[in-house]
Design a protein around this nucleic acid. Structure first.
Lengths: 156, 156
DNA sequence: AAGAAAGTGAAAACGATTATCAGTATCGAC
DNA sequence: GTCGATACTGATAATCGTTTTCACTTTCTT
């Protein structure tokens, strides 16, 4: 975790940017997260400890973290971006629970291989992809899945 | 195509809503599209013929078309929604060209089967999914793919 | 034809994100 | 350490796509 902070600071230095107190606090807060955070969410986390940091600075720092290769930005169709650590983990996709919103990561070599096939067949040269599965997680299935078929779940 | 218009009007009637001139024009324009349209795009198509229709009404009518089961709304991560016919076509996914923006549809039973497996393994009960592949289409590959490795393509 | 109820468009409101700008902090040079 | 160029900050305003509000108009049932 201090590794990453150091990497970030090295990146800033390399790019001729400054290592400010705000950036450090925001980066720390980001590296301390375990799941996906929105800018707003990170803002709240930081704000709790240090009320003087503005949401704008959080956005700017998240952009820097992306530039530094330490964060990935994800769009899950709900209109706001979520950020996750880029670090060591390799490519993965996501399963999102339509009830509790929990996001689970997974990777499947087979799926990716098939994608490659399909894409090649259509003459495309693939650059990246985005696979999102939506459904009820185990907990939510157990809690709500007893009654008669519930189809309208609220997430379009 | 008149089928669909009829279906839409029947839906409106069933729901106690009114079949207005604007709705008919917008629905016609929508059914006349062959690819994915944005609200703005549909607005422009309609506006060309009938300047009195507001963008707001287009949004409202698109929502009705969704409610009627005649349109699907898609989010491709660029911040705006694209709409496609829901009609006969069954489930499919999309390949988006990162250069020209062209959207190609495809379906793969194998990929979906694998998805099911993965999801089940993780205790999820799948409801729907979203798979988007991004890359250069044949035309754009041919046009631009000659030089040295180009990695920064502009679509984050 | 009449009226209740829904529909319309303009403009304002929205939520997430980005740009502007005046004041502030950082950091390399000395 | 101090100085100063330069980047950074935060408040506010602007943007963009979309939705709400509201006064007025249309539809549709009787």
């Amino acid at each position: 975790m201090h590794d990453k902070l150091l990497q970030f600071q090295q990146y800033l230095h390399r790019a001729g940017l400054k290592a400010t107190r705000q950036r450090e606090l925001i980066a720390r807060a980001f590296f301390a997260t375990t799941t996906h955070v929105s800018a707003e969410g990170l803002y709240r986390r930081v704000g709790g400890r240090h009320p003087r940091i503005g949401l704008v600075t959080v956005y700017r720092t998240l952009k820097l973290l992306k530039d530094a290769g330490l964060a990935h930005e994800r769009q899950f169709g709900d209109g706001r971006a979520l950020f996750e650590h880029a670090s060591s983990e390799r490519h993965h996709d996501h399963i999102i629970c339509t009830e509790c919103g929990k996001i689970t990561e997974f990777a499947s070599v087979e799926i990716e291989a098939l994608q490659e096939q399909v894409v090649r067949r259509l003459g495309f040269h693939i650059q990246y992809h985005k696979l999102e599965l939506y459904g009820r997680c185990r907990d939510c299935s157990a809690a709500a899945g007893k009654g008669p078929g519930v189809h309208a779940i609220g997430v379009g």
